[in-house]
Simulated scan of single mutants.
Amino acid sequence: MLVLLPPSETKADGGSGAPLDLAALSFPELTAVRERLVGALSGLDPAAASKALGLSERQADEVERNARLREAPTTPAIRRYTGVLYDALDYGSFTRGQRARAGRRLAIASALFGVVRADDPIPAYRLSGGTVLPGVGGLRGVWRVDLEKALSTADDLVVDLRSGPYAALAAVPHAVTVKVVTATGLAVSHFNKAHKGRLAAALARAPREPGTVRGLVSIAAAAGLRLEAVGKNALELVID
């Protein structure tokens, strides 16, 4: 099972890992595209970077982060990304065995790296899925072919929790999608990320790996979460 998480705009600072080694990241078939994007992003002058990324003068540190991509310290991706979903996932509370399972099962969509596994060491950066990068263009055109190919063979059971801009970078036709809804069927927006984080935690922690949609429903139920099948590859996470 591979659980695809969305990234977060906010990233934790620092890290104790060696500088970025693109060839050491999971999904090595994406290395060439990663190299192109890292070079383009880190090479932007401050004014062009701020404009492309929609940053204000008070966010100059974000531009500096990108300029230092190749020499900055790294930390595992699951610790680098922060925010509501990652707070709800609560990786810090995982046991050693659960962290090992999370390393195999969790992957994070990324505008810069395409997709990384939870344990992949990455630096802090700023780049969103909808960015048009000078000298490169829209990221969907850059990622689509290579990323779709990588994800199509990543695992037989893929649970896609990505948000819109990152789902748009590459389609995963066989993936199981999850929509967060109320008991009356209304889509949940405000707490959507938190509920997906709890589901991701349940799937990562589970002692046995599910091979079917029915298995996903069972794992969620054991964690007190209500998943309902609404199609062959579509689930709803129902919030009372």
Rank of each mutant, 00 (worst) to 15 (best):
S128H: 14
Y86F: 10
L69N: 10
R34T: 04
D120W: 01
F27W: 11
A48F: 02
Y91V: 11
T75G: 08
R126I: 02
R70P: 10
L55S: 00
A47L: 15
Y86A: 03
A118R: 09
Y125K: 07
I108K: 15
R80P: 06
A111T: 04
A77Q: 13
D87Y: 07
T82M: 03
A52T: 00
A72E: 04
A72Q: 08
R70W: 14
P123C: 09
R58P: 02
L69T: 08
V115K: 04
S93M: 08
F113I: 12
L53V: 00
A48N: 06
R36T: 13
V38K: 11
G39A: 07
V116N: 09
R117Y: 14
R101E: 05
S56L: 02
R36S: 13
E62A: 10
R104P: 01
G97I: 09
R101T: 05
R126E: 00
Y86L: 04
L127S: 04
L37V: 02
G97Y: 13
R104N: 02
V38N: 11
T75R: 15
A107R: 12
Q59A: 10
A100C: 03
A102D: 10
E29R: 11
T31Y: 05
A109P: 07
A67G: 01
Q59M: 15
Y86I: 03
A49W: 01
L22A: 06
R117S: 12
S42C: 07
Y125Q: 04
G114Y: 10
A77R: 11
P46F: 01
P121E: 13
G103Q: 14
R99V: 10
V63T: 14
F113R: 13
P76H: 10
